[in-house]
Design a protein around this nucleic acid. Structure first.
Lengths: 115, 115
DNA sequence: TGCACACATGGCAAAATAACCCTATATATA
DNA sequence: TATATATAGGGTTATTTTGCCATGTGTGCA
């Protein structure tokens, strides 16, 4: 322990809150799920559309979408034989530009090293 | 496969991009790391401050911070015996309000079920 | 010079995740 | 009603992540 004044431990309530937040973010932390979320920014899509586009088993795609639904990021609606998914809280899309900023900052650093 | 017109598979380049994005988001997808990132919004902190606050081994805290650094989210600076961490791309903080919105949306739904 | 502190890192075991295959369910359609 | 289609969910295995311990490194101080 270091000799510091202002100590502020993580309370029990905070632990629960941050676990919940991490759970939402974790749902976005997968290439396929991230891609699907960004596609949903353009409007709803059914599972089979994703299954065609993504190079993965149908059941894998279905499970990814289920995970996003459980996290509260998307919602689904069954119409006929198909199930359509759409963004429930569209603000998640806005975050992507920041993620890109992180990557660009990294890239800039990397290229600076080569000089 | 369903009978749909507009099919747009994930290109190889997109796979790389989304893997990179997911890597950044994954760095945030942990309760302890998330908590540390939010604390850093108030200014830099040294590792030992976190170690005092977080209920985990010192080495665990150090590894979490290393992971955030490798993801390009924080940067560190050694001053004397201590290493100080600070946010490198502060926009990540703005995302938190959206994550909270997701959780509130979920909570609202849950309580609606009880009526 | 030697010691104590602040961190980082390698190794390891447990836990969580991911992706496949297979089966079950619901809905349109013949 | 039988059948094909669209999707969900269980089971299993491989991979990744997590967190602790032990150890190594650098820095200030006695």
């Amino acid at each position: 322990m270091c000799a510091y004044v202002e100590m502020r431990g993580m309370t029990e309530k905070e632990k629960l809150i941050y676990a919940a937040k991490a759970r939402v973010i974790k749902a976005l932390a997968h290439p396929t799920r991230l891609w699907m979320v960004e596609r949903l920014a353009d409007g709803e899509r059914c599972v089979c559309e994703f299954a065609d586009d993504v190079d993965a088993d149908f059941s894998t795609v279905s499970k990814h979408l289920a995970l996003l639904r459980q996290a509260g990021i998307v919602e689904d609606e069954k119409r006929g034989k198909q199930v359509f998914y759409r963004l429930k809280v569209p603000c998640v899309i806005k975050f992507m530009s920041c993620v890109e900023a992180v990557i660009e900052s990294q890239a800039k650093e990397q290229s600076a090293l080569l000089k």
